[in-house]
């Protein structure tokens, strides 16, 4: 499954990083602790978080995640958007809480 597929199926907003929409998704990781994501996420996962600042992109890029979903309707900061475009890692958004969007993504990826 690709990033563009989950956007449609989960009704996600695309903030930036459109060039990366054909990235392949291998799984998901839900966490708001940057060191946890740094230590435990894997390449190709979709990272679900409420963090909106630029360091999110640094971690995402170093770990080669497929995309980031920002939950609860939070808006990414401008620096985050710019780096997402530079790195071609899509920055997505949803009004859902982390629990719900994680569950729905899990279901999509495992069916």
């Amino acid at each position: 499954m690709k990033v563009c597929d989950i956007i449609e199926k989960l009704g996600l907003t695309v903030f930036s990083g459109e060039q990366g929409l054909d990235r392949e998704i291998t799984g998901g990781y839900t966490s708001d602790l940057l060191s946890d994501v740094m230590g435990n996420s894997e390449e190709g996962q979709v990272w679900i978080t409420l963090q909106t600042h630029k360091n999110v992109m640094a971690v995402a890029s170093l770990k080669d995640v497929a995309a980031i979903i920002i939950v609860k309707g939070f808006q990414p900061e401008e620096g985050t958007i710019n780096q997402s475009n530079d790195e071609d890692i899509p920055l997505l958004g949803t009004d859902m809480e982390a629990f719900e969007v994680s569950g729905r993504l899990y279901e999509l990826l495992n069916n």
Partner: peptide, 10 residues
């Protein structure tokens, strides 16, 4: 910001 969880050095 999501730092300072005491996981850095480990």
């Amino acid at each position: 910001m999501g730092f300072g969880a005491g996981m850095g050095l480990p």
